[in-house]
Amino acid sequence: MTEATDLAEWAGDGDPRAGLRAVAALRRLLERLETVQVRDARRQGWSWQEIATELGDSRRAVHKKYGRR
C-alpha cells in the first residue's frame, strides 16, 4: 500500500488517537503534494490565477502562500 492509503485506513480506525494522527499526517502529505504541483505549474509557465482556479482558491491566497518559495 502507499503512504496515503495506509494513512486513510488508519484515519478510519476506531481509535481516535490513531485516527487523529493519521489526519495530521495526511495534511502534511497533502501540503507537500500541493507544493510540488504548484512549483511544477509555475515552471511550466502557469499564472497564479490558473493555479488558483485549479485549487479552488484566490490568486492572492495562492501567491501569498507560494510566491516567495
Rank of each mutant, 00 (worst) to 15 (best):
E3N: 10
G67W: 14
T5D: 11
R59V: 01
A61W: 04
A22R: 04
A25I: 02
E54H: 12
V62F: 01
D57N: 07
E3V: 12
G19D: 00
R68D: 07
V36M: 14
G45M: 01
L33G: 02
S58T: 15
G45A: 00
V23W: 08
A41S: 09
A41R: 10
W10K: 13
W48V: 00
H63W: 14
V62D: 07
A25V: 02
E34R: 12
E54Y: 04
L33E: 09
L29M: 05
W46D: 06
Q49W: 13
G12L: 15
Y66N: 06
D13G: 04
A61D: 06
E9T: 15
L26I: 04
D57P: 01
V62N: 04
D57Y: 11
A41F: 07
R32A: 08
K64N: 04
T35H: 12
S58I: 14
R32V: 03
L7P: 02
D15L: 15
L26D: 00
A8S: 09
D13Q: 02
I51A: 09
L30M: 10
V23P: 00
W10H: 07
D6A: 05
L55G: 01
Y66H: 15
G12D: 12
E50R: 15
E31H: 04
L55I: 02
L7M: 07
A22E: 06
H63N: 07
G56R: 12
R39V: 04
R39P: 01
R43T: 00
E54M: 06
R39W: 11
P16G: 01
P16Y: 12
Y66P: 05
E34I: 06
R39D: 05
L29Q: 05
E31V: 03
D57F: 10
E50N: 08
L55E: 03
V23L: 15
R68F: 02
A41I: 07
P16H: 10
D57H: 13
R69A: 08
A8W: 08
M1Y: 07
I51S: 04
D6K: 12
R17Y: 08
E31T: 01
L29A: 04
W10E: 08
E54G: 05
Q44F: 08
K64M: 04
L20C: 08
L55C: 05
R32G: 01
G14R: 13
R42Y: 05
R60Y: 14
A52E: 03
D6C: 01
R28Q: 06
H63S: 05
L7E: 04
D15C: 10
M1S: 05
T5M: 07
R69W: 12
A18P: 00
A25F: 06
M1D: 00
R39L: 09
Q44A: 10
L7Y: 08
V38W: 10
I51H: 09
D6Y: 09
A22S: 11
G67E: 10
Q37C: 11
V23Q: 11
T53K: 13
A52H: 10
A61M: 01
R17I: 11
